[in-house]
Design a protein around this nucleic acid. Sequence first.
DNA 1: AAAATTTGTTAGTCTTGCCTAACTTTTATA
DNA 2: TATAAAAGTTAGGCAAGACTAACAAATTTT
Lengths: 217, 217
Amino acid sequence: MLSNTEENYLKALLKITLLNENEQVGTNELAKHLNVKPATANDMLKKLKEKSFVEYEKYGKINLTDEGKTKAIYIVRKHRLWETFLYEKLDFSWDEVHEVAEQLEHIQSTKLIDKLDKYLNFPLFDPHGDPIPNTKGEFLSIYKKKLSDVEIGQSCKMVAVRDNSSSFLQYVVKLGLGLNNQIKVISKQDFDGTIEIEVEEKKSFVSTKFAENLFVI
Amino acid sequence: MLSNTEENYLKALLKITLLNENEQVGTNELAKHLNVKPATANDMLKKLKEKSFVEYEKYGKINLTDEGKTKAIYIVRKHRLWETFLYEKLDFSWDEVHEVAEQLEHIQSTKLIDKLDKYLNFPLFDPHGDPIPNTKGEFLSIYKKKLSDVEIGQSCKMVAVRDNSSSFLQYVVKLGLGLNNQIKVISKQDFDGTIEIEVEEKKSFVSTKFAENLFVI
DNA sequence: AAAATTTGTTAGTCTTGCCTAACTTTTATA
DNA sequence: TATAAAAGTTAGGCAAGACTAACAAATTTT
């Protein structure tokens, strides 16, 4: 049985490895993700190695074992199902679901999650556009192009966000953006890379950082 | 902010004071309810006194303060709403809901609970027949007579259970009993108080202990 | 009322998960 | 390549929540 804290470490490790495809995961980065100090993360890595959820040697690379990855994906499954429930059934808004799901994802009951999945009609994506793993841990992986990769004059469709923080999502909403919205890239500034976009007749300027956090297709 | 553990202590204190109306709550009894040793319960009592959720002096009586009682009732509200959700929406059986609700009751989000309440149509009773407190902490208090109090030859209706353990509830189901069922008391044995009951044409014998855990009207 | 039993309390220890401070290894830079 | 910077590690401490063992107070029994 894993503690909530251990589960959070596994989830963070999965997230980091999936986000920075090729980059390697480090103690510092892991610690930053979890808002703890590197020393703390280091302690936990030893513990998770002991329990064989991660592979790693002193000063070496950190990798989830198959078992660790399975656990981590299951937590993601729970998180995204709860987000979907909050959004679809309880009428939570897009940017409110994450925080509560962070708590709900640690509830231990396979039966509960399977029944919730069924109740929601086996959804494939959560309210942020992220794929929901099935009982076997499989999930649809859509190719994620960032808004920042779109050429001037091209249009695209918003399919997901990279950052689930409330502050980011509220900004997204403020710009009139939402899942499946059509976005046209009007221009880019040479100076700082600011991008001018048009959404439903409305033009706005967004930063490169912002554009790197919006997935489109 | 209260920890899950602290919440469980408050809940246990409320439960004990409501069950044994006049009897006084003791360290030992509290410890037994929470599956900890008396010394542990004692430590926590000091802490809860410090935070002014309980009133008590060394070797003296233990009482929840108004604040403590409010907190405790709110946890009960959450617990019973979750049980109702599991039973009504997710198709859990009567005897499975308690365990999962024990975890769900600690999720911190007032918004979540209010929305859940609304989604369930503001239910007044949970699947075990226990009243669900409203946002103000008020709840319907129905007079609870025990099956063991029913006279020979009399009939009654089952309205709630005193013990939510899976083992007890499964036994209830096995006897063909459920909420709102009509129960007729056929006879009582002088020897050990065993009671013969009839439910939907079916006769069974139940122990005094069992009969003291079934509320009827 | 004294003795025995039950109930309640204190002191000291353990584990988990976090911290700081100091140190070591690796990587980047001059 | 030597040195500076960054990243990673270790040692020692702290708070929460549990435990055991020993002790104190209250209650029951004789």
